[in-house]
């Protein structure tokens, strides 16, 4: 279906259908539950990728079959808290259940907190760093000295609040 040749009327009608169906889906408790399951599954998959381990290694540590882990990380199964705990331990992380009002911002995962990471290489004088940094960032970001870098190299990280 290539819609590029549709008339404007057809496009607007299709847009309305898309919107009304999405609104309808959001009102369905089963669909909302599926989206929550998917969100947890993707977060776990990202945490696993960030840990640098293979799926097989995590499955072995958690004492489950890799096929079962794959289904869990695809959002196809309803994870129990015990299963979630096993996988988190195998990955090397911990999880919290954070309750909030529907209109409040969700808690951020570690990979969602970093924005605009830049590295300034070879500043002439270390004392200049703070001046440059303040000029570049208005929102008082944290300054992290990266131990892997040379003494005159800094990594600056700005954290943000999700919109």
């Amino acid at each position: 279906m290539n819609s590029s040749k549709w008339s404007e009327v057809q496009k607007v009608a299709a847009g309305k259908r898309f919107a009304s169906r999405l609104t309808q889906s959001y009102q369905d408790p089963a669909f909302r539950a599926t989206l929550r399951r998917d969100k947890v599954a993707v977060d776990l998959s990202i945490a696993l990728a960030e840990s640098g381990q293979t799926r097989q290694a995590v499955a072995d540590k958690a004492g489950i079959k890799i096929s079962q882990l794959s289904r869990q990380l695809a959002g196809d199964t309803n994870l129990t808290l015990d299963s979630l705990g096993k996988i988190c331990e195998a990955i090397g992380c911990e999880f919290d259940v954070v309750l909030r009002q529907p209109h409040e911002k969700p808690a951020l995962q570690s990979w969602q907190r970093t924005l605009n990471r830049i590295t300034i290489v070879r500043m002439a004088h270390e004392s200049d760093d703070a001046k440059v940094f303040q000029a570049m960032w208005v929102n008082k970001p944290t300054v992290v000295k990266n131990p892997k870098m040379a003494s005159n190299e800094y990594e600056f990280t700005s954290r943000y609040e999700a919109a």
Partner: peptide, 16 residues
């Protein structure tokens, strides 16, 4: 929602 989909093929085609 309905404002974006008419100009965006990936969204409007999903409507069908």
């Amino acid at each position: 929602l309905g404002d974006i989909a008419p100009i965006c093929p990936i969204l409007r085609e999903a409507g069908d």
